[in-house]
């Protein structure tokens, strides 16, 4: 049974007056993660939107202890936090990294790999808005094929890195994907993470109105379309056990997926695919990648 919204704790850990942009889905994710953790957490944040949003001195945007550090350093810093907590006899506080896609897919990948391999008891959350938003929307290795960024003016020529497979190769105790359009599902996954000592990894799909160029109120809609077009797959892996998320289950069948145009057309970063006419070839490439990802995920995990 999924948690009912009314059963989530009322206490807010994401404080008012933080520096987030209008429509920021990161705040939705943080809000639900912290409701699930209820304050018994130390959060490590590398350079990313979240660091700016919650730490602008002399204010604090989160009602929990936060350690902001350098871009490549999050997972290693968390290792140190966990080790010192253990040395001091604290085995209950969750150590959680909250990092963007740049700090995870790219510059933070080595430290993440190391921390997972050392079986660090922590939860690493990558909130993936598929671009270096904080520095002005440059491409990352999480940026999807044909998306425009300030460093890919005619769209990115390469497909995104399938990070989940890299993480899975480290065999974390618990791994999941989530999407801010399904906050109750995300809340439940954080609750589940609390039950599994050892390395845990959560990958959150997180639309960004600034970088993706859509009206600020459309974030939830876009997140849902990502699932309904099959672009984003909701799944969990508890040890070896793979669970295809109930939101994604029916879209395993390509016939049941909504046309990808519904998802792409809402976002300015893909507008060149429709101007002056629909670029059938490039859109077919995106569709092919979507199917390829489904194939790889299902083949690997089931």
């Amino acid at each position: 049974m999924m948690v009912a919204t009314k059963d989530m704790p009322l206490k807010e850990y994401v404080l008012k007056g933080n520096a987030a942009c209008a429509g920021c889905q990161d705040m939705v994710a943080l809000r639900h993660a912290h409701k699930a953790l209820e304050g018994d957490v130390i959060q490590v944040v590398p350079a990313c939107c979240t660091s700016v949003v919650q730490s602008l001195w002399p204010k604090s945007g989160l009602a929990i202890p936060v350690l902001n550090t350098a871009f490549p350093a999050a997972a290693a810093t968390a290792s140190g936090v966990r080790a010192a907590l253990k040395a001091k006899g604290n085995d209950h506080t969750m150590v959680m990294v909250w990092a963007g896609d740049g700090g995870t897919f790219d510059i933070g990948l080595q430290a993440l790999s190391g921390a997972l391999e050392r079986r660090t008891d922590f939860l690493y959350i990558c909130y993936n808005n598929q671009v270096y938003s904080n520095t002005g929307t440059q491409r990352s290795s999480a940026t999807p094929l044909h998306a425009k960024t300030t460093t890919t003016w005619f769209g990115k020529a390469e497909t995104e890195k399938m990070l989940d497979l890299i993480v899975a190769a480290h065999e974390p105790v618990y791994q999941f994907t989530a999407n801010t359009s399904y906050p109750r599902d995300f809340y439940d996954k954080i609750m589940k993470a609390k039950e599994h000592p050892g390395p845990k990894f959560g990958h959150i799909f997180l639309p960004c109105p600034q970088a993706w160029n859509y009206p600020v109120e459309k974030g939830v809609e876009i997140g849902k379309l990502a699932v309904e077009t099959g672009y984003w797959i909701q799944w969990e892996r508890i040890g070896e056990e793979f669970i295809l998320g109930r939101q994604s289950k029916r879209f395993l069948d390509p016939e049941k997926r909504k046309p990808i145009d519904e998802y792409l057309k809402m976002q300015g970063r893909f507008s060149h695919l429709y101007k002056p006419t629909r670029d059938d070839k490039k859109i077919a490439e995106i569709e092919a990648f979507i199917q390829h990802r489904w194939d790889v995920v299902m083949r690997t995990f089931t």
């Binding site: 350098a70 350093a73 140190g80 080790a83 001091k88 080595q110 430290a111 050392r118």
Partner: peptide, 28 residues
């Protein structure tokens, strides 16, 4: 000794882990 030894994967991570542990109040 009782200390936790973290065999990190780089020196960047070594000093980072030290920062994390020190921030919690550990002798590092």
């Amino acid at each position: 000794i009782n200390a936790a030894v973290i065999p990190v994967e780089s020196e960047h991570s070594a000093m980072s882990a030290c920062v994390g542990a020190s921030a919690v109040g550990g002798r590092v």
